[in-house]
Design a protein around this nucleic acid. Structure first.
Lengths: 191, 191
DNA sequence: CGTCTATTTGAATGTACTCAAAAGCGGTGG
DNA sequence: CCACCGCTTTTGAGTACATTCAAATAGACG
């Protein structure tokens, strides 16, 4: 499980003690999921934060019309959860579904709280994760608003080449805020 | 300054001790700004987190084309900062500008860190603020992507009637991801 | 009152959408 | 191994919504 340690240390920008690392491992556990399984479901409580060890998943919102809107993708070494549910102990607003058979590390809220209390370095770590998400979302909003679909796609595929390969095109379309037909035309036009 | 205390307690969902509250007041300070002053500027370091006591301001990103894109509005009892800069000690990516003469409470990063260390309740408080922002942005992304401009405007003005009154229409347009002309037509059509 | 900025209106254009259907791809069972 | 089925992607044609460019009003401020 060196993947987790690498993730923590590169996020923090420095190494962590073996003790702190072992404490994390001790209170989290692995679980494997089939393709198309749910890690979280809108309306239900999302009890865990997930660190993807292998595989891929995505979170989405369903609106009144029934459209699924992709919010986030997560592959190896990414964290994902429904933060509204996990942190605030309310029903989830998003659904998280695997795209492939997936192995994840699960961290419950109680264990998360204990961990942060015992090792303040994790307070910092998870705050950085939150801040990074926030900053990324700010940028994404700005670009969704101000750039056209072609620009957004070009930037997306440059920034996340591995996503472009593994994730169905209609989900990338949804993430970018266009219809699958439109993304197909954009790709034809671009290449 | 009971406004701050109300904000903290309603965010936390419970009261805080006088001691904790006084500690906050002791390490923060008030500052007044004219209309059109900057609280933060893209490229410069944003040293403070701002709690708006009176007035209004907004944050925006400027893209390569020079377009300003409104990201967030803040009036009385709202918090605002460039989180990428403030938390991660990097140059700001957004600019924060007052829309009116504004009085704000300023909290520096060092004092913030000390405060959280001494009173863990503030760790929780600021984490909740971050989580709320994150959840709101997720929803905003989903709606920007899936709803048409009229729907977005109707929802915005229902959710933030006070914003609709105090904030110039072209900034609301920018926030919603449409041009001012389009918002004008939407309003005519809606009313 | 005059100037500057914000808002509204008009007409033409364009980007992305809808509806519809065909082609491509992957997996399953005969 | 091939045929079939379901799902994804592509393509076509017509449409709708928001944009652009341009100009006229309306408001705010000194």
């Amino acid at each position: 499980m060196t993947l987790l340690r690498e993730n923590i240390e590169s996020t923090l920008g420095h190494e962590i003690s073996n003790e702190a690392y072992e404490a994390f491992v001790a209170i989290s556990f692995q679980k494997s999921f089939d393709k198309k399984e749910f890690l979280a479901e809108a309306g239900k409580y999302c009890r865990y934060q997930f660190f993807i060890i292998e595989g891929a998943c995505y979170s989405y919102y369903v609106n009144e019309k029934g459209d699924k809107n992709a919010i986030q993708f997560a592959i190896e070494s990414h964290w994902i959860t429904d933060s509204a549910s996990y942190f605030a102990d309310k029903p989830a607003v998003s659904t998280i579904e695997t795209l492939e058979p997936t192995m994840a590390l699960l961290l419950s809220k109680v264990n998360f709280d204990n961990l942060c209390q015992q090792y303040p370095v994790y307070d910092k770590f998870f705050r950085i994760l939150l801040q990074n998400s926030l900053a990324a979302l700010h940028l994404r909003i700005a670009k969704t608003i101000s750039e056209d679909a072609e620009h957004r796609y070009t930037e997306f595929s440059k920034k996340y080449p591995h996503f472009t390969q593994r994730i169905p095109q209609y989900l990338i379309a949804s993430f970018l805020g266009v219809k699958p037909q439109s993304l197909s035309r954009i790709r034809k036009h671009t290449s």
